[in-house]
């Protein structure tokens, strides 16, 4: 049981954003995708989530080929995602934003009772908000939140539906140190009950969180394996040397 990515490729006209990426993510693990800006990380995540149709290759989740499934069909298979650029419903309250993740189960085809009156929904939404430390902001309009708080609401929106596979696009981007620590612990606690694929730039977070890593550069996958393997991989070190050795922290000789 796993997420199997085979030969995944995405071309935009003449540009190959993702080229022939093959990775297997074991269930119950946290798998980080790293690489410089423009390496194709988000494009890869978009193909996993169903927001982009691959030009070639396939994605299989729990032995089912989901390459051609729409984003909403993948939600039905237990796959949820967050966005790099926060995409909240700014007109709605924070709790309603989170509730939208759970109400999706009905597809919105309920016409009579107020949305939050669905039995158990309010409690579940508050619990999801509590996990990211925002229960106190439940009734605020999402549009007035700080950037860090918005990122955490984003995470709560996915958490409420309790997906088996979470695709997180830079969940720590723009968070303060305290918020960061809190979100890191939320993500850490997701495994082994959930499988997580995350894109992140914060190297300390990645090495403390992830069970496996994939390094991308210029659309290609240049290494994949445990954090230790990847750190010692000559191709990775060659690719990153130009960016300065500090990227890898003190452990790099």
């Amino acid at each position: 049981m796993s997420l199997r990515i085979s030969g995944l490729t995405k071309r935009f006209g003449g540009l190959t954003a993702v080229s022939d990426v093959s990775v297997t993510v074991e269930e119950g693990t946290i798998h980080a995708v790293i690489g410089p800006n423009g390496a194709g990380k988000t494009t890869l995540l978009n193909m996993l989530a169903g927001d982009l149709v691959p030009s070639a290759g396939s994605v299989a989740w729990r032995d089912e080929d989901i390459t051609k499934l729409s984003a909403s069909a993948r939600v039905g298979r237990g796959i949820g995602r967050t966005y790099q650029r926060t995409a909240l419903f700014t007109d709605k309250t924070v709790i309603m934003n989170v509730a939208m993740g759970e109400l999706a189960e009905t597809g919105g085809w309920r016409f009579l009772r107020p949305a939050l009156d669905r039995p158990g929904l309010r409690g579940k939404a508050l619990a999801a908000l509590d996990r990211v430390g925002l229960a106190g902001m439940a009734e605020a309009r999402a549009g007035v939140l700080s950037h860090g708080a918005r990122r955490r609401v984003e995470l709560a929106m996915v958490l409420i539906a309790d997906p088996a596979l979470l695709l997180l696009d830079e969940p720590l981007a723009g968070l303060g140190p305290d918020e960061s620590r809190q979100v890191i612990e939320v993500i850490r606690a997701l495994a082994p009950a959930h499988t997580v694929v995350l894109i992140e730039h914060d190297m300390d977070a990645i090495f403390s969180l992830s069970h496996a890593l994939t390094v991308m550069d210029d659309g290609r996958m240049i290494a994949t394996g445990t954090p230790k393997d990847v750190r010692e991989d000559p191709a990775v070190r060659a690719a990153y040397l130009g960016e300065g050795p500090s990227v890898w922290g003190e452990e790099v000789p």
Binding site: A49, D51, S70, A71, S72, V75, G76, G80, R81, Y83, A87, F89, T90, D91, K92, M96, A99, M100, G101, L103, A104, E105, T106, G107, G108, W109, R110, F111, L112, R113, P114, A115, R118, M157, A161
Partner: peptide, 28 residues
């Protein structure tokens, strides 16, 4: 008023704000 406050109304307003996001959440 009832319709707008129902899950359908919330979904409709969600689609107005960001339909890609709605799709990612599992709505059509």
């Amino acid at each position: 008023v009832v319709l707008i406050r129902s899950p359908f109304g919330e979904a409709l307003q969600g689609v107005k704000t960001d339909d890609r996001r709605m799709r990612a959440l599992g709505y059509n």
